[in-house]
Amino acid sequence: MTIIAISSDSYRMGREIGEKISKRLGYRYLDREILKEISAGSGISEGKLLKALEKTPSALGMSARDQAVYLAHIEKKVIGEFLKDNVVCHGLAAHLYVLGVSHVLKVRVLSNPEVLGKELAPGKDLSGDAMEKLIGRNENARKRWSLKAFSLDETDPSNYDMVISLNKIEINEAVKSIAEAVGYKKFKAMSYSLKCLKDEETAAEARTILFPRFPDAQVRANGPTVVVITKGMKREKQKKALIIKEMVGKIPGVNFVEVHIVNDILRQAAESLR
């Protein structure tokens, strides 16, 4: 079982490359088409899921809590698909939430700036400077989004195994390089890396349950154990821990939930001033 997670500064380009790789290797291709299924399963509209993948939360737009919930549903479904088969995935931010899984080849593809400029401003004839600024703004927006959503910079090359620029390298050549790279032995699934992926799936499922009520919860899973860290007041520690244990304990395969409630200093200070 092998997984290729593709990130690109252009959705269209990433999709083209992803489809070509999946065809070449005979892998399943996964992209935003899966949002329909996630929507049907979670009751969250497809538009909201798409927005969570593209927009940074703001006061007038989507809240950070909503985004966290929507992304948790996407993460859970995508990881579930990863556990089934050989997959090429693009456009679902997988490169940001399976960072610690060793058999996922993470690749970023950078479009030719002229092609990207035309895609970002269709029908406009931009000068070189204007195009550069537009591309820079787009990159900064993606950087802000990824930092907010996953505390990782999507544009940082160290988050990938390989970054290919399509300035001179042609699409088919990039496809060939990626398809060949996945054959290197480090990208073969092993029992430990599969366990890591399964743990990520369990943690994502726990997030989908917890985030609507506890959006600041940090969740990790290790086999049948789930560890949750969240903030709370001293007096509500016990009650909160019980609720979390009950909520997460319902997940099939989870038989121990460890909850750590960290003192919410800000809330405590605010209450003491009342």
Partner: peptide
């Protein structure tokens, strides 16, 4: 560190 300056960036770790 801007990847667009290069044709190829390779991380020597798992590769």
């Amino acid at each position: 560190w801007d990847s667009s300056l290069y044709d190829l960036v390779v991380k020597v770790d798992r590769l």
